[in-house]
């Protein structure tokens, strides 16, 4: 069971308090009516499904209820960073290098 850090509560808690909500930084297009079919389908369905360093959304569903983001190595399951929703995506390559990947 993973250990997840909530950047709002500032605590590390067991995975059972959280729910994972898939890839992070998939923004809803700001003007859907001006978005092409292709781009809309991409927004709806296409995910990178990375083997390796991956930014994903988590929610502290049985805690504060807040959504936040985490960078996880999907191979080792190790988290490299936790950050609040709205903060920019960190440099994944730099994080990977730091973690010795």
């Amino acid at each position: 069971m993973l250990l997840v850090y909530c950047p709002y509560c500032k605590v590390e808690r067991a995975e059972t308090e959280f729910s994972c909500r898939g890839e992070a930084h998939i923004a809803r297009p700001s003007d859907p009516s001006q978005t092409s079919d292709e781009d809309w389908v991409h927004y709806l369905y296409m995910r990178s499904n990375t083997k390796g360093i991956y930014a994903e959304r988590w929610r502290h569903i049985h805690g504060c209820g807040r959504f936040f983001n985490a960078v996880r190595d999907t191979v080792s399951d190790n988290f490299l960073k936790f950050y609040k929703a709205g903060e920019p995506m960190p440099d994944l390559e730099a994080l990977a290098k730091e973690a010795g990947k």
């Binding site: 923004a27 959304r57 929610r59 209820g65 959504f67 929703a85 709205g86």
Partner: peptide, 13 residues
């Protein structure tokens, strides 16, 4: 409820 929270927190904060 989760959908509402999601849009509220992440799309329309």
């Amino acid at each position: 409820f989760a959908t509402m929270e999601d849009y509220l927190q992440t799309e329309w904060p």
